[in-house]
Simulated assay, not measured.
Amino acid sequence: MTTNAPGAASPAVLRYTAFSADPAGGNPAGIVLDAAGLDDAAMLGIAAEVGYSESAFLTPAPDSASASASASASGQAGRAYDVRYFSPQAEVPFCGHATVAAAVALAEHGAGAGDFVFSTRAGTVPVTVTDADGAPRATLTSVEPHVDEVTAADLTEALASLDWPADDLDPALPPRIAYAGARHLILAAATRERLADLSYDFERLAALMRRLDLTTVQLVWREKDLTFHVRDPFPVGGVVEDPATGAAAAAFGAYARELGLVPAESELTLHQGADMGRPGVLTVNLRDGDAKVRVSGAAVRIEG
Rank of each mutant, 00 (worst) to 15 (best):
T2M: 06
T2V: 07
N4K: 10
A9P: 01
A12V: 14
L14A: 03
Y16L: 12
T17D: 05
D22I: 06
P23K: 09
P23F: 07
P28T: 04
P28D: 08
D34L: 00
D40A: 15
G45Q: 02
I46K: 12
E54Q: 13
A61T: 06
S68K: 14
A71H: 00
G78W: 08
R79H: 10
A80H: 07
A80D: 03
D82H: 14
R84C: 08
Y85N: 05
Q89G: 09
E91S: 13
F94R: 09
A98M: 02
T99K: 04
A103G: 08
T120E: 04
T124N: 13
V127C: 14
T128Y: 02
T130S: 13
D131S: 13
D131H: 11
D131L: 15
D131Y: 07
D148P: 00
T151F: 06
L159E: 01
L162T: 01
A166R: 15
D167K: 05
P171E: 15
P175A: 12
I177K: 05
I177W: 03
I177T: 12
A178W: 07
A180Q: 11
G181S: 12
G181L: 08
A188I: 02
R192W: 02
D197T: 15
D201N: 12
D201W: 10
E203G: 11
E203P: 11
R210C: 05
R211I: 01
V217E: 01
Q218N: 11
R222F: 03
L226T: 14
V236E: 04
V236K: 02
D242G: 06
Y255G: 05
R257C: 10
L261W: 00
A264E: 10
T269A: 11
Q272I: 04
G273I: 04
M276R: 11
G277W: 10
V281W: 09
T283C: 08
L286T: 05
R287W: 02
G289P: 06
A298V: 02
A298S: 13
A299I: 10
